[in-house]
Write a protein that binds this DNA or RNA. Sequence first.
DNA 1: AGGGCTGATTGATGTTTATCAATCACTGCC
DNA 2: GGCAGTGATTGATAAACATCAATCAGCCCT
Lengths: 231, 231
Amino acid sequence: MRAGEKPEISQLPLFREMGDSDRERIFAGSFLQVFPPQLTLFELGQHADFLHVLVDGLVELYASSAGRDTTMRIVEPVSSFILAAVVTDMPYLMSARTLVASRILLVPARLVREMIRQDVSLMEATMRELALGYRDLVRALTDMKLRQSAERLGNLILQQELRQGGTGKVRLRAEKRLLASLLGMTPENLSRAFGVLGQHGVEVDGAQLKITDRAALEAFARPDPVKPDEH
Amino acid sequence: MRAGEKPEISQLPLFREMGDSDRERIFAGSFLQVFPPQLTLFELGQHADFLHVLVDGLVELYASSAGRDTTMRIVEPVSSFILAAVVTDMPYLMSARTLVASRILLVPARLVREMIRQDVSLMEATMRELALGYRDLVRALTDMKLRQSAERLGNLILQQELRQGGTGKVRLRAEKRLLASLLGMTPENLSRAFGVLGQHGVEVDGAQLKITDRAALEAFARPDPVKPDEH
DNA sequence: AGGGCTGATTGATGTTTATCAATCACTGCC
DNA sequence: GGCAGTGATTGATAAACATCAATCAGCCCT
C-alpha cells in the first residue's frame, strides 16, 4: 500500500473509530489490487469472500434478472461496498465491475467478521453504515415507486447540486447511459426527460447542467421533505 | 405486559442473544400499548422516538411523496420495525398505521441506543438485523426495476408459497388493494395480473391461490437465483 | 329479505415508458 | 483531413401501466 492512501482509508467512517492496532491488522491481512476498466469484480450469487474498498477509480454495482440489468449504485472513492453480504456471510445480491481503471482494497470477509467481533468500535461503525445504507435504499425504493422518470431525474439533479456545493451548477460525472440505468429508465427516455426539465428550470449543455429556476424545479420534482442523510 | 408475550418478544432475533438483565431493563423502560385499527402510529419526517415491536395485530409501513403513496412493508407479529431510524437518531422515512387492532411495544429510542452501547450481543443482533433488512431492500429495488407487474406478482406468490410450507397452496392474508400497493401497481392492474398468471400455472379463487404448474410459473416469473434470506 | 357499503373485477381510454430505427456529435486514429 | 466507433439525441411505434367508469360479489345491517 502506498504511503498516501492509508490515511485516506483510515478516515473512512467505517474504520475511523476503531483501535489503531486492530486497523493495522485489517490492513495487514488485505490486498490492494489494481484492476483495468470494464472488469467484472464479482457476480451476483457468488459467495462474498471480500469486503471491497474503492481507493481510486470508479465502480458500478448492478443487478440482473430475467435477461435485463440495472445499475444499483455508482461507487466513488473512497468508500467500501457490499458490507451487508460480508456481515451476513451470504451470497452477493449484486454484481460489480470497474468503469475505469481502479485500485481496490480487498479485505477478506472472514477477517472483517473476526475483527467486528473483536473491536466494538468497528462493530458500531458497521452498524451505523448499514443503517445509513438501509435508509438510502428506502429512499431509492420510494423514489422508484412514487415518481415518474423525469421527476426522478429532477430530484437527482437537486441532490447532486447540493453535494457539489450549492452553486446552481451540476456536472454529471457518469455517462448518461449509466445515469439512465441508475434512474431505472432507458437512455432514450433520459434524453427526453432532460427535455422536459428544460421547461422546469434546468439548462443542459452536455454533461454540464445549470439550475436556472430552483423553485420551478422543486415544484416539478417535489423533493422529499427529509433530506438525504450525511454519511 | 402479559405473561404470555414476554417470552415471545424475548425470542426475537433482535433480543434473543443479549443479557437477561439488559433485556429486563429494556422491557422495564418500555410501554405496551393497544391501538385501534386504521390508526396512524407515526408519520414520515417525524423524529424517531420509539423502536416499535408489533406483538399482535398488523401494521402497514408506507411512504408518500408528491400526493401519491405506496406501502413499503406489511409487518406481521412478532417483529420490530423502524430500527434504522432509531439507530441513526434520524427522522422516519416511512409512516406507519395499524391495519387491525394491534398491540405494540414502544421502546424509547434513547434507551435502545444506550443499551446497544452497553450490550455487545444486542449491538451484534442489531447489526445483523440491519444487514438482512438491507438485503431485503436490495431485492425489492431490483424487483421493481427489472420486472414488470405480473412478474412481480408471480414472484411474490412463489415466495409466499415457500413461507407457507411449500404445499402448492397460498393464502393471501392482506387485502388485494394493499398487495397491489406493496407491489407498486394499482388494484385494477393486480386483477389483470392475476388473470395473466392464470395462463402460467396459477389458479385463483378469491384469497386462495393454487400453483398448478410450478415450472410454468417459474418460467414466467424468473425468480432470483439467490433465495430470500432467513431472518 | 332488501338496501347500502366496501372491495374486486372488467372494459374503455389516456399516459408513460420501452423499443426500434435513424441521425447527429464527438473522439481517436492513421 | 477523413473515417470508424461510440454515445447522445430524435422520431415513430408498441407495450405496459394508470385512470375513469361501470358492474359485480360479498357482507353487514336492522
